[in-house]
Design a protein around this nucleic acid. Structure first.
Lengths: 221, 221
DNA sequence: ACAATTCATTTGGGTAACCAAATTTATTGT
DNA sequence: ACAATAAATTTGGTTACCCAAATGAATTGT
């Protein structure tokens, strides 16, 4: 009955992966500590252990980077996290913005077979409820190119693939007007005056402010 | 990012609950240690902590028993475990005998809401894949009375509700002859010579040895 | 009854994660 | 260049679990 192998380590890997991909700056001990909301001493200790396990490298300037091995593991966690999110939303009727903490727990369940079966059960989803792509078993992930709806071409079929803002207010607003990730839309017209957009969605016409449209990310072929 | 509150404690509670219900003997430190596969010193320490938390009582003769509070918590874990088992079998196509370890992990996911939604999603199952009843939110559980098929009455509609043996071989055998938990059967005849049974199932006739029938538990009204 | 066995308990350790506070080592603005 | 700032590191803890081995207490077979 041994519980959880390196539960924490997985959090470090995932956070490191996210920081490497999202930030411009190098990831140092302080940055990682802040992201993990842990004490720098704690993080330093852990990073050293992970270095010994060949999961990270510590460069001369103290930058912390994932090794290939670390990256692979990190992508596995990301994969689990996103698949569980799909499960929670598609099967248990959670909202997009409610699933993060639960997925954070579920991602640590240790079984590749389970994850594989989950993927099959969910019908091989390619993106999670936030529109982020789901890595395959080998950690390969399609880079999805997106653009804000405000920059997309008129009269083209577009799909909302992600949100630039996941605040409660925004999600509720989208709920109200009937839009969600995966929705097929088409820009009908842009109002010169205030840049508001008139779009069509399921035969309905919806008017969006420039601000709202800016946070709707659509596919870019 | 604080992980898991009292992950171990949940294992102690569940194990204690099972021992109290399955065993005739009083549960002492040694018995609990053996069941948990942990050192007696470890268990003693933990049991004391749980005593302080009012989850268990330590009687004068050193018997360890769950308090009402402890029992309630234990039943919650049992509920989670069994619901996850249903999920794994019904939705992810696992076999009855493959799900225990995974459910052991999943049962620690900390969210009552998730468990509730899971229950709804699974259609309010009343028993897990092994035929054990699933407690409701308040810990109430129907006691299912069972009897071996060998002791059940002839020519009555019976349902296989549990197995007296969960070995791989037995499960494979059942698979082969088309029987599983939930199956409706009826005893047609008992052979005097070797006590083998002829039963009907889905319009087919199946011959079972006494030994096999002994391990098939059916409902007892 | 009493030696043998079993159980309970104590003692002394161990590991994985965590922290605060002090210290050392850059880095940086003037 | 050099004081101020920031980052890295060290030191000395903590908690939750876990163990082996020694000791003490209770039970049991003969």
């Amino acid at each position: 009955m041994q519980h959880f192998a390196h539960h924490s380590e997985e959090n470090y890997l995932k956070t490191l992966y996210k920081l490497e991909n999202k930030q411009i700056k190098k990831v140092n001990n302080i940055a990682l500590s802040k992201a993990l909301e842990l004490n720098p001493a704690t993080v330093l200790e852990m990073v050293r252990r992970m270095n010994e396990r060949k999961l990270v490298e510590i460069l001369a300037d103290k930058t912390i980077i994932l090794t290939d091995k670390g990256k692979k593991k990190a992508l596995q966690i990301v994969r689990r996290h996103r698949l569980w999110e799909v499960f929670l939303v598609d099967k248990l009727s959670y909202k997009w913005n409610e699933v993060h903490d639960l997925a954070e727990q579920l991602e640590h369940i240790d079984s590749d077979d389970l994850v594989k079966r989950l993927e099959v059960f969910l019908g091989y989803p390619s993106v999670d409820p936030h529109g982020d792509p789901i890595p395959d078993e080998n950690g390969k992930m399609k880079k999805i190119r997106t653009q804000p709806l405000t920059e997309a071409p008129l009269k083209k079929k577009l799909t909302i693939v992600a949100l630039g803002n996941s605040s409660d207010e925004f999600l509720k607003y989208l709920d109200k007007i009937g839009l969600k990730i995966g929705a097929a839309v088409e820009i009908v017209e842009v109002e010169d005056f205030d840049k508001s957009l008139s779009i069509s969605h399921k035969k309905n016409s919806i008017i969006l402010s420039k601000e709202a449209a800016d946070h709707l990310l659509v596919n870019m072929p």
